[in-house]
Simulated assay, not measured.
Amino acid sequence: MKSVQVFPRMQRERVKALLNSVGERSGSEWFGIADRRLEASMKYYESDAELIQALTDEASFSSSDLNAVRRVSNELSGVWVEVRVSGRGDFQAEMRQLVDRLLTEGGYALDDYSLGVWSLAEIRHGRRDGQPFRA
């Protein structure tokens, strides 16, 4: 299952409201996003250190990804949203749209295909090395 990890600067209640506006909520999960093509889950941590510790404990992040999030952690709000493709389709446009909305107030995302975090400007326009964001 393809996924993107999003660390918006947006406050938790605003993230919940945004996800509530696009999907059906069940606890900390949202389903049926983008005509049932996407799902999302949200976790919240009180501090940067707690967020980094949770990512470390998850054990599915590379050390370079963890270091990239550490470098920008002072710019984050403690919210971690995982956006997943529901099914086998590509759904790049739908994934990008949701990530774009989550990052409108700042923050960063990690995709499954590249190293480091992505800002909204880099997602929209690509990186200087020509690498595109791929959900």
Rank of each mutant, 00 (worst) to 15 (best):
L55N: 08
G78L: 09
D57P: 07
A135K: 05
A34S: 09
T104N: 03
R101M: 13
S28R: 15
I123N: 01
E46R: 09
G126S: 08
V4E: 11
D90E: 13
R96V: 14
D112T: 00
L103K: 05
T56N: 13
M1L: 11
V6Y: 03
G89D: 14
L98V: 11
L55M: 15
V15S: 04
D100K: 02
E13P: 02
D100T: 10
Q97S: 09
L18M: 04
Y44D: 04
E29I: 12
E39D: 14
R101L: 13
Q53F: 01
T56S: 15
V69C: 06
V72D: 06
A59C: 10
D35Y: 11
S26M: 08
K43L: 14
S86T: 05
E39Q: 13
E24W: 08
V117N: 01
R70M: 10
R37G: 14
R25W: 06
L55K: 07
V79G: 02
R88E: 01
S119Y: 02
E29N: 13
D129C: 05
E82G: 13
Q97P: 00
V85M: 07
Y113L: 07
L115R: 14
S60P: 00
V4K: 05
F133A: 03
T56R: 14
E46A: 11
L76K: 03
A54Y: 11
N74H: 12
G107E: 05
R88D: 02
A59H: 10
Y113I: 00
G23E: 09
D129P: 03
R9F: 01
V79M: 02
A49E: 12
A34P: 00
S73V: 12
V69S: 05
F133L: 02
T56I: 11
D90Y: 12
M42E: 07
L102Q: 02
P132L: 06
L115F: 14
E58S: 13
A17C: 10
T104K: 04
R14W: 04
I33E: 01
F61S: 08
E39C: 11
V85I: 10
L19T: 07
K43S: 15
L76Y: 03
Y44P: 00
